[in-house]
Design a protein around this nucleic acid. Structure first.
Length: 659
DNA sequence: GTTAGGG
DNA sequence: CCCTAAC
């Protein structure tokens, strides 16, 4: 922190996080002008900004080139290796050989030219190699690859940012000095932050465990990670030891003798294999140093834009989310690029292209799709679907949606949910699906709407079914609709309908237990049906019949906390019913009121309702009515007659009772 | 983020 | 159940 460099670094990070871009501009262009001799690899930030590559980035290129092929092969073979390797490759893809780059940059222009030429070459090579790999990845278990890609992408994203920051530092000082000062600051930083680093270890572990199962594969075999905690210094290890660590880390052997390379590699691997660590640590001079500033953390939690990485760990899911969204954004905007005409630009474009390609392979997140649809629908509605498809919606949809057990019982659901949350079918699920209670955004609707083939037909069909509108009918029609759809649509349909995610495992468990107790048969959750709106838009109706117990809880809740305090009731009385929102409660109460006052008085319709909807026992209705009267919740229209009959006492009764 | 109300 | 306006 003491060193100028460090300070700048942290500042940079902050700015970047904050979204201030002047720094970047200042760095890339001005800098470039000032020192034309220094050609650097540049990469495009998530938001499209150009960020100079860092020494770290430059670091491995050479070794990478040497090992590229070998690694790729490995990748092709094992899923695990695949994940790990993809990480490495992707991250290394943006790297250039440092020692050379540095040394050359400080030389004459002639050297610089050479360098640039070389960089170009390297770029090409990397490009090709990466492309190859991508192809392979995409060919192989798309699930895995995509999943990995996800993780990896976000990792690299982070990494890039970090590197970008480093680079800035570097670019502002003589390169040689950079190294030194870098080391210097690192050690300083090291010392000052050692405490935090220690703290960090725990969350890190958690993350590793809680992280995607896929990445876990790589991480699991990384016993030596402990060595990285606290001090995180591989310097003391011999090459042999490094090899061991390497193997432990990546699950494969390496023939590389270069100590530096190994150290870096290991550090990288460890870092990349862990979502958070990337954010938290900066790899520099063969040491993992706690990063001063977190980019991603901020994204996740703006308030936590402090020097404490721990924050980021808290909700890595969100982290992933935000990251993915970032990536998405990047993806959509990657098309446009800064229009300068420098060499850097050329490189950056290459990189950009490269990245784009990489991302293309990546499975799009739901968020992405949504946003994409939104964006594109404005301009090219026709192209919308195809593009989405190409990006890989289908595999994902099919995959994540693979739930024959949908109709299954509670157990079935449990399993399914688990799959979803654990990523049994795909890592991405947890991060992507988790948040939303599953109501697709309008965008998605739009997406559906735009779907070329037979959408219109489907729509009408659905509508028909919907019109019948009985809870049961709903389901039936819904399923029919799904089945009726043509393949492509089905994919989409499923994709859209899929969402019904039940939440975090913990809650789920609880929920499950309670559920069993309920007499309800609603356990057949996910009566998710997409229904067309009158305007042509579709919306998903995700129906879940209210169970008696739920109703009772609701009534109790109202009695306790008062009608209108839905959030309270939801939180306190419906804690276990994750799917009931306060709005739901409110709606239900409204209905209950209606029902109670409509039927109870005469006692005629009490249970006589033959409609599919669950009949509400008279007692409950009675109670509802009482509560309503007590709280003057009586529906206006009904209250008139009813209250009048009762003597209108409730008129003066205010909610004060519970207040 | 909640709540109320219409659809 | 969805959507939105209003808070």
């Amino acid at each position: 922190m003491e060193t100028v460099v460090l300070v700048e670094g942290s500042n940079e990070g902050k700015f970047e996080e904050t979204g201030l871009e002047k720094n970047n501009s200042a760095l890339s262009s001005p800098k470039h002008v000032a020192d034309p001799v220094v050609y650097k690899l540049v990469r495009v930030e998530g938001d499209g900004r150009l960020v100079p590559a860092t020494d770290d980035e430059l670091m491995e290129v050479e070794g990478l080139l040497e090992n590229e092929k070998r690694e790729i092969h490995i990748v092709a073979d094992t899923g695990q290796a695949l994940g790990c390797t993809s990480n490495e490759v992707s991250s290394s893809g943006i790297q250039l050989e440092s020692s050379e780059g540095l040394s050359q940059s400080e030389n004459t222009e002639a050297d610089a030219e050479k360098l640039s030429a070389r960089l170009e070459y390297i770029e090409e090579m990397l490009h090709k190699v990466k492309h190859e790999e991508r192809l392979r990845l995409s060919c192989r278990s798309p699930d895995h690859s995509s999943a990995y890609m996800n993780v990896d992408s976000h990792c690299s994203e982070q990494h890039d940012k970090l590197l970008g920051i480093d680079q800035k530092l570097q670019s502002q000082i003589p390169l040689q000095e950079t190294v030194l000062s870098g080391t210097q600051c690192m050690s300083d930083n090291h010392v000052t932050q050692s405490g935090s680093v220690g703290e960090r270890s725990k969350p890190l572990d958690e993350l590793i465990e809680g992280g995607s199962s896929t990445s876990a594969g790589c991480i699991s075999s990384k016993p030596d990670f402990s060595k990285l905690k606290g001090e995180i210094c591989l310097d003391n290890l011999s090459i042999k030891e490094l090899h061991e660590v390497f193997k432990a880390t990546f699950g494969r052997d390496t023939t590389v003798k270069d100590k530096q390379w190994l150290k870096r590699r290991i550090a990288m691997g460890l870092t990349n294999s862990c979502d958070v660590s990337t954010t938290t640590f900066v790899i520099k001079d063969n040491k993992l140093v706690k990063k001063v500033k977190e980019d991603s953390c901020n994204n996740v939690d703006g308030a936590t834009s402090e020097d404490h990485p721990v924050v980021g760990v808290e909700n890595h899911e969100d982290l992933l989310n935000s990251l993915s969204s970032q990536i998405d954004e990047h993806q959509t905007t990657s098309g446009m690029r800064l229009g300068s005409n420098s060499h850097e630009n050329t490189y950056s474009e290459d990189l950009a292209a490269e990245q784009r390609a990489a991302k293309r392979v990546r499975k799009p997140t739901r968020r992405y799709i949504e946003e994409l649809s939104k964006e594109e629908s404005k301009e090219y509605s026709g192209r919308l679907i195809p593009s989405a498809k190409n990006i890989g919606i289908r595999p994902m949809a099919l995959k994540s949606h693979a739930r024959p057990a949908r109709n299954g019982s509670l157990d079935g659901r449990t399993i399914i949910t688990r799959l979803d949350s654990l990523g049994g079918s795909g890592i991405q699920v947890p991060c992507v699906y988790r948040v939303r209670r599953s109501r697709p955004r309008k965008n998605v609707m739009a997406l559906l709407k735009f779907h070329p083939s037979g959408m219109g037909m489907t729509t009408t069909f659905v509508k028909k079914g919907l019109d019948v509108h009985s809870s049961q009918m709903d389901n039936g029609s819904g399923n029919k609709v799904l089945e009726a759809r043509s393949t492509p649509e089905q994919t989409l349909q499923q994709f859209v309908a899929e969402p019904k995610k039940e939440k975090p495992a913990a809650e789920l468990g609880q929920h499950m237990g309670l559920k069993h107790v309920n007499l309800s048969g609603d356990s057949s959750d996910d009566n998710v049906v997409t229904v067309p709106t009158a305007k042509g838009g579709t919306r998903r109706k995700h129906h879940r019949a209210w169970t008696l117990s739920e109703v009772m809880k609701l009534v109790d809740g109202v009695a306790k906390y008062g009608a209108g305090r839905w959030s309270e009731i939801k939180r306190l009385a419906f804690a276990s019913y994750s799917y009931r929102t306060s709005v739901d409660l409110k709606d239900k109460w409204r209905n209950l009121l209606k029902a109670s006052f409509a039927q109870t008085p005469v006692d005629k319709g009490v249970n006589s309702r033959k409609h599919p909807s669950m009949p509400i026992p008279a007692p409950i209705l009675l109670r509802v009515r009482e509560l309503a009267e007590i709280q003057s919740q009586v529906p206006p229209n009904l209250s008139a007659s009813k209250l009048a009959a009762c003597g209108g006492r409730s008129v003066n009764e205010t909610r004060s009772g519970y207040l």
